[in-house]
């Protein structure tokens, strides 16, 4: 037996002999935070590791749920789960990545998403990836607008931002406060399917504000 493993493990519990750094990396390799939450409910040791996982990945799909009220309930529970995890992590440093993927055929996601973007700005994550597919219905336009015009979009740590937004409107800070969009550290920025709304909204304004490496 290698000396690297912790001694004193009982029975067949070999995995708990691995050190914390290794177990955190294992948790970080799980596909979503739902898996992390289940793993961290296994024992006290694992519970203590949950707040050290650097990548927070969440995924939502309506697949497998037929009734509309149930779909909505499932989505609200998903939003509550994301918010619960983000709250629990708000005090701890070391969030490297926030990735949220949502496929939704009902309205009502934009508000939650705006709050998550604000969270990333506040808590200095290195990477943000949002993949949203919202319903293609003009009457949902207001519900599908992510309102960030009161947000001071400043991050000195964000390096990668990928926004893949289908049928989503993104309202950024008004031209008068354009300097409020500052990403000093951003090296990779990608947009897919985004429509910018409001006076003077064009992508060059966004890109001009960022020192991207080409």
């Amino acid at each position: 037996m290698g000396k690297l493993r912790r001694v004193g493990g009982e029975g067949n519990d070999l995995i708990s002999e691995l050190n914390d750094d290794v177990l955190v990396r294992v948790l970080d390799s799980l596909p979503t935070m739902a898996d992390v939450a289940r793993a961290c409910a296994a024992s006290r040791r694992w519970r203590h590791l949950s707040t050290r996982v650097p990548s927070l990945r969440f995924g939502f799909t309506e697949d497998g749920v037929d009734a509309k009220p149930k779909r909505r309930e499932k989505f609200y529970r998903f939003v509550a789960f994301v918010n619960h995890v983000l709250d629990a992590r708000a005090a701890s440093a070391g969030i490297e990545q926030l990735a949220i993927s949502i496929e939704l055929y009902d309205r009502g996601a934009a508000h939650a998403v705006a709050a998550w973007i604000r969270y990333v700005m506040r808590h200095a994550a290195k990477s943000l990836a949002l993949d949203l597919h919202l319903p293609e219905d003009p009457s949902f336009a207001d519900f599908n607008t992510i309102d960030l015009d009161d947000l001071s979009m400043v991050s000195r740590r964000l390096e990668t931002m990928t926004l893949s937004l289908a049928y989503v409107r993104l309202r950024l800070p008004a031209a008068a406060t354009a300097t409020a969009v500052v990403f000093d550290s951003l090296v990779d920025l990608s947009f897919k399917g985004i429509r910018l709304v409001g006076a003077g909204a064009d992508s060059s304004r966004l890109c001009a504000a960022t020192p991207l490496e080409h």
């Binding site: 029975g11 519990d13 390799s29 289940r38 793993a39 296994a42 024992s43 519970r47």
Partner: peptide, 24 residues
């Protein structure tokens, strides 16, 4: 190791890895 954990309930994870139940 993560692939073994993926998709399992906490109870299934304890069984798969022989982890003792010690939650308060």
């Amino acid at each position: 190791i993560a692939d073994t954990i993926k998709g399992k309930t906490p109870e299934e994870i304890r069984t798969a890895f022989g982890i003792e139940y010690d939650l308060t």
